[in-house]
Nucleic acid binder design. Structure first.
Length: 224
DNA sequence: TTATAGATTGCCT
DNA sequence: GGCAATCTATAAT
């Protein structure tokens, strides 16, 4: 079966996580299920650097859990958090060098009814409100539920391979305007501006106060 | 072997 | 706006 979208290349991910973060905005995450295709546009991500980033899971070295982040670029690092949720990252940089991007929010495109079912919600279609769609994929734990992403099933998957059932593609949408903010939900390095959102997009997570522009000096440091 | 903190969410007041 | 739920990788003992 031919992929609907052109997959992103290995080279795309073989770069600094900050660059990958910025360029991932607007791209499409595709989940191929038995009978249908779930897809959604990436509207919010966070960069996690290796050494030098205390908030990164790789900060204190390689462990069995974070091995994927140390591996080759373009692979899925899925971890379990707070006893309830999974979070999905993409590995960046060459084999042996840590660094990745956490996918934090999506805009649902296709397979919306199935996403709702996976989230345990009932949506009344065929027209969906922005509010309903937000409840599906606005947040790293939510989007993993909506796309049935689990550690057992998806950790280590090659996200440049359309036949893997989970991959990242480009639909040719124009590059969006990008907003930078501090990352969400962390204690260490809480002020580093490494969260990237599509400016003004209604599907990003968090209250509006977390989605305001940073001063230019902070942006210079974060844009690579 | 035991303790602890956590890249979250949803329900409560 | 506050906080409990719930599990596990990793650190500490």
């Amino acid at each position: 079966m031919k992929p609907v979208l052109a997959p992103l290349s290995r080279a795309f991910f073989n770069r600094d996580p900050r660059r990958v973060s910025r360029e991932l905005l607007g791209k499409i995450l595709v989940r191929q299920r038995r009978t249908q295709t779930l897809s959604a546009r990436i509207v919010e991500v966070e960069a996690y650097l290796g050494a030098g980033d205390p908030a990164s899971h790789t900060f204190s070295g390689r462990t069995p859990r974070n091995a994927v982040i140390f591996g080759p670029p373009g692979h899925a690092y899925v971890y379990f958090i707070y006893g309830n949720y999974y979070c999905l990252n993409v590995s960046c940089l060459p084999d042996g060098v840590p660094g990745g991007v956490l996918i934090r929010a999506l805009e649902p495109l296709t397979g919306i009814a199935e996403m709702a079912r996976l989230r345990g919600l009932t949506l009344i279609g065929p027209e969906y409100s922005t509010r309903d769609l937000k409840a599906l994929t606005s947040g790293p734990g939510r989007l993993c539920q909506a796309l049935a992403v689990t550690r057992a099933e998806d950790n280590g998957k090659d996200l440049t391979d359309p036949t893997s059932g989970l991959y990242l593609g480009d639909d040719g949408a124009p590059r969006p305007r990008v907003l930078l903010t501090p990352r969400i939900g962390i204690v260490k390095a809480a002020d580093m501006p490494l969260r990237y959102v599509i400016a003004g997009n209604p599907f990003v997570s968090g209250p509006g106060s977390q989605n305001k522009p940073l001063p230019t000096f902070a942006r210079r440091a974060a844009f690579r």
